Simulated scan of single mutants.
Amino acid sequence: MTSNERTPSGWEELTAADPAHSTWYVERFRKLAAEGTDIVGEARLIDAMLGRGSRVLDAGCGPGRIGGHLHGAGHTVVGVDVDPVLIEAARTDHPGPTWVVGDLAELDLPAQGIAAEFDVIVCAGNVMTFLAPATRTAVLSGFARHLAPTGRAVIGFGADRGYDFAEFLSDAESAGLTADLRLSTWDLRPFTDGSDFLVAVLSRAS
């Protein structure tokens, strides 16, 4: 691999091995929504952190369930995902936000004419664990660059998925982010040493 070649994410490797996976993933969430399943718990937490009309980046947005809900709540939403199938589903199912196909490791929204000052960056759905390990700090650094001065990044993922929580928090610090709060669920349960899920609320280091 040359220096100009990008490292594919775990998600890209998964969909390359199974080209139908993205379509299955889209239909899975459409089915859950149609059945009345609550699929926007993460979005409710983010909404509670914001004043009306805030700017939100849905990083690794998938088919748009979080960003779509936040747009409906009155926020300006930009969603980025590396998978064009998921972005097309987001555009179809959740019109209104700006949906962008892009690699989080190369995130540069101002270069695409999109302001970088986000009040919240939300990264849910175990997105961090699908990143190529070599790109994790680059992704977190991109989040720091795209935050407003008082903005926060909220990142959630599960244990035993190849990214140790302590390593993640160290990477975040290296990327210029400070962990202000750690939770074990999106419904505000406290994080403990035995927690099998982490929701980290981070801000730009002063």
Results as ranks from 00 to 15, higher is better:
residue 44 R to I: 10
residue 69 H to T: 04
residue 13 E to G: 14
residue 30 R to L: 13
residue 101 V to T: 12
residue 140 L to P: 10
residue 31 K to Q: 13
residue 30 R to V: 14
residue 124 A to D: 03
residue 177 L to C: 10
residue 91 R to A: 11
residue 53 G to N: 05
residue 123 C to A: 05
residue 182 R to A: 15
residue 36 G to Y: 13
residue 145 R to M: 07
residue 170 S to I: 06
residue 88 E to I: 06
residue 62 G to F: 14
residue 85 V to M: 06
residue 55 R to F: 15
residue 68 G to V: 09
residue 2 T to A: 14
residue 19 P to I: 02
residue 89 A to R: 04
residue 73 A to Y: 04
residue 96 G to E: 04
residue 108 D to H: 01
residue 67 G to M: 05
residue 136 R to N: 00
residue 22 S to W: 05
residue 109 L to M: 01
residue 39 I to F: 14
residue 199 V to G: 05
residue 65 R to Y: 12
residue 27 E to Q: 11
residue 23 T to I: 07
residue 102 G to N: 00
residue 150 T to L: 14
residue 27 E to G: 01
residue 85 V to E: 05
residue 36 G to H: 08
residue 52 R to M: 06
residue 169 L to E: 13
residue 191 F to Q: 10
residue 41 G to Y: 11
residue 37 T to W: 10
residue 196 D to F: 11
residue 97 P to I: 05
residue 139 V to R: 01
residue 67 G to Y: 09
residue 35 E to Y: 09
residue 47 D to C: 00
residue 72 G to F: 13
residue 109 L to T: 00
residue 9 S to E: 03
residue 12 E to C: 03
residue 61 C to I: 04
residue 81 D to K: 03
residue 148 A to E: 08
residue 166 A to Y: 03
residue 42 E to T: 05
residue 90 A to L: 05
residue 114 I to L: 12
residue 85 V to L: 03
residue 90 A to D: 09
residue 23 T to D: 12
residue 158 G to R: 11
residue 182 R to P: 08
residue 87 I to A: 06
residue 177 L to R: 03
residue 43 A to V: 02
residue 35 E to G: 02
residue 12 E to S: 08
residue 20 A to L: 10
residue 6 R to L: 14
residue 181 L to K: 00
residue 5 E to H: 02
residue 185 T to A: 14
residue 126 N to A: 11
residue 92 T to I: 05
residue 31 K to T: 15
residue 205 A to H: 14
residue 91 R to W: 08
residue 176 G to A: 09
residue 121 I to F: 12
residue 68 G to M: 10
residue 62 G to R: 00
residue 172 A to Q: 03
residue 84 P to N: 07
residue 28 R to M: 15
residue 49 M to L: 15
residue 173 E to G: 13
residue 20 A to W: 06
residue 102 G to Y: 12
residue 15 T to F: 12
residue 103 D to K: 09
residue 181 L to G: 02
residue 140 L to W: 11
residue 34 A to D: 13
residue 145 R to W: 11
residue 96 G to D: 10
residue 20 A to R: 02
residue 163 Y to W: 15
residue 197 F to Y: 15
residue 131 L to F: 15
residue 49 M to F: 13
residue 192 T to S: 15
residue 76 T to F: 14
residue 83 D to C: 12
residue 21 H to I: 01
residue 17 A to E: 09
residue 80 V to Q: 06
residue 157 F to M: 11
residue 186 W to P: 12
residue 30 R to T: 04
residue 178 T to P: 05
residue 147 L to K: 02
residue 194 G to W: 03
residue 131 L to S: 00
residue 3 S to K: 07
residue 121 I to H: 02
residue 140 L to H: 01
residue 76 T to E: 15
residue 155 I to A: 00
residue 80 V to I: 13
residue 87 I to K: 02
residue 99 W to A: 04
residue 44 R to E: 13
residue 71 H to L: 08
residue 27 E to Y: 09
residue 161 R to A: 15
residue 184 S to R: 06
residue 74 G to E: 07
residue 147 L to R: 00
residue 61 C to S: 12
residue 75 H to W: 11
residue 68 G to F: 13
residue 157 F to W: 10
residue 99 W to I: 04
residue 105 A to E: 06
residue 160 D to W: 11
residue 169 L to G: 06
residue 110 P to Q: 01
residue 101 V to F: 14
